[in-house]
Design a protein around this nucleic acid. Structure first.
Lengths: 246, 246
DNA sequence: CGTAACCTTGATTAAGATCAATTCTCGTGG
DNA sequence: CCACGAGAATTGATCTTAATCAAGGTTACG
């Protein structure tokens, strides 16, 4: 939980524009943005915020990965999202206060922790953001789109958690990786997925004990569905995997 | 699945303004809105949409209640939300298409069914909505706030589902009803909550078998926490219930 | 190479689902 | 106003999935 606090002066507008939320902004708006943001650095396992903290603002991932999670009374963790480069997180409390009877200070909706060493984040402070972008339709369009996308993700996540068993959830996860992951290689018609998170983190995302995940991965391999070599998973039978995931 | 198709001519602007999403609109904007919307009527158990259907637009509840749910391959249902009067649902696909590489037609994110006879909904068609309100900051502010609120709800829902056992989930539900329900009576320092949904629907929201919910309600009563009389639940020990929910 | 963190495998347990049988509730018609 | 019947809710007995507990292996990294 060190996190140095620098300016974004070294970030040019082209780089800022790569962040999806900001891709439609013009140079003037980007300059404004740069003037209000803070750059933050983290090592692996550094906590970015707890769900008990008062809200400061939202974050963009420049480098590294972030895990968003909840903790139960007796210490069990459930991972809600893995946030990858160029994506934003913790926007929710920014807008909850609007149209709200209560003027309570909102907290972060979950906990966040850096997954990699040298994780680099931009912090966009709530107050300055509203002063500058409070009436900017372009930002709102992006924001609505991004929140909508996340709502559908959570919908699907809940569907997995409540209506599918462990093997279905795992199959579903692997399929999503094949379809959406940046860590994908193709090689004489076979798909290689790189699971770049620990088994424990994957287990906490699938809401399953690490032991059970291990067994299930073993079973998938025994059944010829996949071939595991460390972090790399080769998908041998996409059709069967799809069937399993249903 | 009958659902007649009428205009909103009988709805005055004051009534429309009660819908939270539209409360900030001026009379001109409300007139525009009225001209593009359709009024729909449903009986209990009428399906409003399936998650396989192409998206038409979003809905506002004028009268009655709506259940939003997902179904597993073998028919098990999980309820994501109960939508009550003056609230909107199915806004998500409206905005997913924006900032999206794919120009795929999106489907509804879940299934929706009317819970009461004479449920009355407004359908706001996607296309006309964008033509009229596509650049309206007021609507976007409301929309962002509403989506944010729902995201936190889903966050908390997932937290319940993954990190709490059945008794904790039930206690948590009852507490939320005491704190937020419109169906609340207070009577010499005791709280009466009216559960105006069936046990089966509650069970599907808590992701528990109806039999297990029944047993748990019985246990809460035996333990003196609550007193059940039909749909009315009297909360005898709020402090203990709060402790149980943690 | 050594060691600590991570992962896998095996045996047992427990929470809650499922199956089966009553009982309760409430709307309907006589 | 009461009797009837169907759907809803409860209760009991058993089963299943995945968690937990407890050892071993592996891997990565200094």
């Amino acid at each position: 939980m060190s996190a140095s606090n620098k300016t974004l002066s070294h970030l040019d507008n082209e780089k800022l524009k790569k962040i999806h939320l900001f891709s439609d902004l013009n140079n003037f708006e980007l300059d404004m943005l740069r003037s209000i943001c803070h750059l933050k650095n983290y090592y692996k396992n550094d906590v970015i915020f707890f769900d008990t903290e008062p809200y400061r603002g939202f974050y963009c991932v420049l480098k590294g990965k972030v895990r968003i999670y909840k903790v139960s009374k007796d210490g069990k963790e459930h991972t809600l999202h893995f946030i990858t480069e160029l994506n934003t997180f913790a926007e929710v409390p920014m807008f909850e206060s609007y149209s709200e009877d209560t003027k309570d200070e909102f907290t972060y909706p979950a906990n966040a922790v850096a997954l990699d060493d040298y994780t680099e984040l931009i912090l966009v402070p709530k107050k300055s953001f509203f002063q500058i972008f409070g009436q900017n339709v372009k930002i709102y369009l992006k924001m609505v789109a991004s929140l909508s996308k996340r709502l559908r993700l959570l919908n699907n996540h809940i569907e997995s958690l409540t209506l599918k068993d462990v093997s279905q959830r795992l199959a579903n996860y692997l399929l999503n990786e094949v379809n959406h992951s940046v860590n994908l290689k193709r090689n004489n018609s076979a798909e290689f997925v790189i699971i770049d998170i620990s088994r424990a983190d994957l287990a906490s995302y699938l809401n399953v004990a690490a032991e059970t995940l291990s067994r299930m991965l073993g079973k998938f391999q025994d059944d010829g569905l996949i071939t595991i070599k460390g972090k790399t998973v080769k998908v041998n039978n996409l059709a069967l995997l799809s069937k399993l995931a249903e």
